[in-house]
Design a binder for these strands. Structure first.
Length: 884
RNA sequence: GGGGUCAUAGCUCAGCCGGGAUGAGCGUUCGCCUCACACGCGAAAGGUCAGGAGUUCGAUCCUCCUUGGCCCCACCA
């Protein structure tokens, strides 16, 4: 049955072999089965450009834990996998690659470019998937999807058409964020603000005289960080309540360089406190100015080309880069004597989250999703707890966004992505939005051309929970698995993705996409810095797997961290996880070695130690299950870890060794072996979601009945394995042993010396249990035998005499340290009990409590009070005894 | 400007929404290669739970204030 196992656990080789077996047996595959309850998770689709990083590793480990746990609990567990086309990220990559070959995207043309993109997808798109497999992810790979596969495309087009019909998708000319490097518009969420040091230029505009010419004496001073935008100025604004400038009302100022008059407008947007209290208004290139312009009907002048060079509206500056134009305009203003001063100024500048180029606000015609109505059910669902965010504090972040929501700019000037299903007539300009290609204009019969733009990559991700299950077709999968259960993701994409999935789910399916969102934090480096390519501080999960095994990596990512918090990753922690895998391995190896050649049967009677460990395991099962149900993955596994290492390995296995080695008592030996095996198997099951490989490997070696731990049954709490008395007894024995070890260590007793311990105690249970018994702790130090014998000598009650190296020590039984410490402890205990007694008495003398609280509560309180009083009496008695 | 979050052992962090700081890993000190495991075993040292005030019989946990980090959102020209 069992075979020779190596001394240390070596995950390499084992993991791939086991994963291949799981795949072959189709354990990951879920079919619709009305007899079973579904449990569904959709994967946050990794980008096809992606390489597995620590964030993925964490995210997918969490999902795998939940899905394996539920699968073992008997749910029909589906982990729906897939990848994301990642419109802009991929396009950028392909452009880069083309550049290496000296090819420009536009020279290649759209069609050829897309061919390259698909080739690229074919070549690299599967890379991340194979990396996820290395991690042990139990995704149903037969159902793998892609955001640009046929079904998803259908879903996207359908949603676009539906929402357009409803008026919730519209085309409009608005100020948008323009990335001059990527040459596309981007949504607000994609803008990241970076602190940049720049300058504040104070500039004078001359007032306009009554005859329409610029004044030579009267000037208006204002400050700007972007002087070049003056080419597009169409007004100057002051606050209507600013008394300094009331004289300006109704007047105009002269726009130098451009040489024309522009009006002074009054608007509350202007902050009286800042700068000079005067703002130049450039509606074409500033979101706030755009709003001001709308309020005052100001013309919009676009002065910039898509590549952020100045266009023909910039006169002599046309063709210059924005920064070059800035330089020259400042020089010119200086020459004109209109430059007042330059201050150093540090301010936030919007940049593109992909390429970090400074974004340029531009007025362009783009497609938008109207958010005000769409967002309502999404807000309500979280408010009502219909969708739970874990940890709960994420609600605030969520509402912070929904309360300030703006329309979503969904069109991108990119080629790789879902092309907008809008068609325009070349002749009359008529537009048709349709879910099929439209060639001829229904109005004039002219030729129609499709909108060149594609959709924001998050548009398709928003539909992911139902598009992957077959929507818009009415599939049995959709019926059965939707709504899904838990979504696991990082808090950093709550706006990009989570909210958009929620409102899309309600809008398209009429139902939430999932009932729980489990957020995790960022994985940082050992110094707490974000892992990034530019810093070069990223740790490759695949390297960690290669060196320590996937189990060790998984355990490291899950422990020592509360939900939603960022975590630091460092190798010492991985080593600890690896050590734990090894510990489990060796404990199992020990048990298997002792099982060798023996027929183990369920014992007729168990010894207290066996009952103790079974009972502890029983509690553990309950604890772990409860914590998993609360998504406390870290706490749950910590408990398994402690149980296996401390209770099971350090105590139980050591306690049981004499029985294993004693061939005279076959019954006792069998009971010990049966218990070892039983406890180990259940503990392995509890550990399996976290460390799937090592647990599977051991499980398959130690028993023949079942072929895989991953489809075995999750342990359940059993009343018949609840032995509270034995738990207490063994705890006392443990504290006795600890006390003895303590004394040994402090007295520096040579390992070869034998320690004899005589217990004289009124603890009847102990006496009965270990009467003339022998506890052998090989690990105590060499040959330390602890004889616990009753009534050996007549020492005081509750004390132990330890004979070590010919000296006899007396140790108080309760603590087995010394009397002073016990007195201290008891004094504290008395203090605590005083508090408890006061509270309890207070409550019971409170009429309102007596009259209003449920009877059961009052009874409980009374019982408590009685208990406290008894405890207090005991403590007091013992204290006087000790002091006396 | 708005919001969140953190401050617990030398380091990194847990601590179950008021009741003995039970802590964990790493590190440190001491003793051990004991026939599962030195990726191990045993023992120990180390914390006025940031500071202050309040509520309470009782606060690391609740309220307020102060200080110092981190993050998100908005963005003032």
């Amino acid at each position: 049955m069992s075979k020779e196992l190596s001394k240390t656990y070596d995950p390499s080789g084992i993991e791939d072999r086991i994963y291949a077996k799981w795949l072959e047996k189709k354990y990951f595959h879920a079919e619709v089965d009305e007899r079973k309850k579904p449990f569904t998770i959709v994967i946050p689709p990794p980008n096809i450009t992606g390489q597995l990083h620590m964030g993925h590793a964490l995210d997918n480990t969490m999902q795998d834990i939940l899905i394996r746990y539920k699968r073992m609990q008997g749910y029909n567990a589906l982990w729906q996998p897939g990848t994301d086309h990642a419109s802009i990220a991929t396009e950028v990559k392909i452009i880069e690659k083309l550049k290496e070959q000296g090819i420009d995207k536009h020279d290649l043309g759209r069609e050829k470019f897309l061919e390259r993109a698909w080739e690229w997808k074919k070549e690299y798109g599967g890379r991340i998937v194979s990396q996820l497999k290395k991690l042990g992810s139990s995704c149903d790979w037969d159902r793998e999807r892609f955001t640009m596969d046929e079904g998803c495309n259908k879903a996207v087009t359908k949603v676009f058409c539906k929402m357009h019909e409803k008026g919730w998708i519209y085309k409009g000319s608005r100020i948008i964020n323009w990335c001059p490097v990527c040459n596309t518009s981007i949504s607000d969420a994609e803008v990241v603000y970076e602190e940049q040091s720049g300058h504040l230029w104070y500039i004078n505009y001359p007032l306009v005289e009554a005859d329409g010419t610029p004044s030579k004496t009267e000037f208006l001073t204002f400050a700007t960080t972007r002087p070049e935008t003056m080419l597009g100025d169409t007004a100057v604004a002051v606050n209507p309540d600013d008394e300094r400038y009331t004289y300006l009302h109704g007047r105009s100022v002269w726009l130098p360089i451009v040489n024309k008059a522009i009006p002074v407008v009054e608007d509350n947007y202007v902050d009286v406190e800042f700068g000079t209290g005067v703002v130049k208004i450039t509606p074409g290139h500033d979101p706030n100015d755009f709003e001001v312009g709308k309020r005052h009907n100001l013309p919009i002048i676009n002065i910039m080309n898509d590549d952020a060079t100045i266009n023909e509206n910039g006169g002599e500056y046309a063709g210059l880069d924005r920064y070059e134009a800035r330089k020259r305009i400042v020089e010119k203003l200086k020459d004109l004597g209109l430059l007042v001063k330059i201050e150093d100024y540090s301010h936030n500048v919007g940049t593109h989250d992909r390429c970090h180029a400074t974004i340029e606000p531009l007025v362009k015609e783009q497609w938008f999703v109207k958010m005000d109505e769409l967002i309502k059910p999404a807000v309500k669902a979280v408010q009502d707890g219909d969708i739970k965010l874990v940890p709960e504090r994420m609600n605030k972040t969520y509402f912070n966004w929904t309360d300030n929501i703006r329309d979503w700019c969904i069109s991108r000037q990119l080629w790789w992505g879902h092309r907008i299903p809008a068609y325009y007539c070349d002749k009359c300009g008529h537009m048709v939005v349709a879910d099929h290609a439209v060639d001829t204009c229904p109005e004039c019969g002219g030729h129609m051309t499709q909108d060149p733009d594609t959709l924001d990559t998050w548009f398709s991700s928003a539909l992911w929970p139902f598009s992957t299950l077959g929507w818009p077709e009415k599939t049995k999968e959709l019926e059965y698995f939707y709504p899904t259960d838990v979504l696991v993701t990082g808090y950093d994409i709550i706006f990009f993705w989570v909210i958009r999935m929620i409102f899309s789910g309600f809008e398209q399916m009429g139902e939430k996409p999932f009932h729980t969102v489990l957020f995790h934090g960022l994985v940082r480096d050992d110094k707490g810095r974000k892992m990034s390519k530019s810093l070069g501080n990223g740790i490759d999960p695949l390297e960690v797997i290669a060196k320590y095994g996937a189990d060790a990596l998984r355990l490291t990512l899950i422990t020592g961290n509360a939900p939603g918090n960022d975590m630091r990753f460092y190798y010492e922690r991985v080593e600890n996880s690896r050590n734990f895998a090894n510990k489990v391995w060796n404990a199992s190896r020990f048990i298997m070695m002792n099982m060798e050649g023996k027929e183990i049967h369920e014992p007729k009677s168990l010894e207290p130690a066996d009952q103790w460990i079974l009972s502890s395991l029983n509690n553990l099962v309950k604890d772990v299950t409860e914590n998993l149900d609360r998504y406390e993955l870290g706490i749950a596994v910590q408990k398994v870890y402690d149980f296996i290492w401390e209770q099971f390995c350090d105590w139980y296995i050591e306690m049981v060794k004499p029985r294993l080695y004693n061939t005279d008592d076959a019954e006792s030996q069998n009971a010990a072996l049966w218990t070892l095996k039983t406890v180990l198997i259940d503990a392995l099951k509890l550990l399996h979601p976290y460390m799937p490989f090592v647990t599977e490997e051991i499980f398959c070696s130690i028993q023949d009945e079942e072929e895989s731990i991953m489809i075995s049954k999750w342990p359940e709490y059993r009343e018949d394995r609840n032995f509270p008395k034995q738990e207490r007894d063994i705890e006392i024995i443990k504290s006795a042993v600890r006390g003895i070890r303590n004394v040994r260590s402090e007295m520096n007793v040579a390992p070869s010396k034998k320690a004899e311990v005589y217990v004289v105690s009124d603890k009847v249970e102990i006496r009965r249990t270990f009467e003339e018994g022998k506890l052998f702790f090989a690990s105590l130090a060499y040959a330390s035998e602890v004889n616990i014998q009753a009534d050996k000598t007549g020492i005081a009650d509750d004390a132990v005499s330890v004979v070590i190296a010919d000296a006899t020590l007396y140790i108080p039984f309760a603590e087995l340290v010394d009397i002073a410490q016990e007195i201290e402890r008891l004094t504290k205990e008395a203090e605590r009990l005083t508090g408890e007694l006061n509270r309890s008495r207070g409550m019971l003398s409170n009429e309102r409590f007596i009259s209003k609280a449920p009877e059961q509560k009052v009874a409980e309180e009374k019982a408590k009070l009685e208990k406290y009083e008894q405890m207090m009496a005991k403590v007091q008695e013992r204290l006087t005894q000790l002091k006396g």
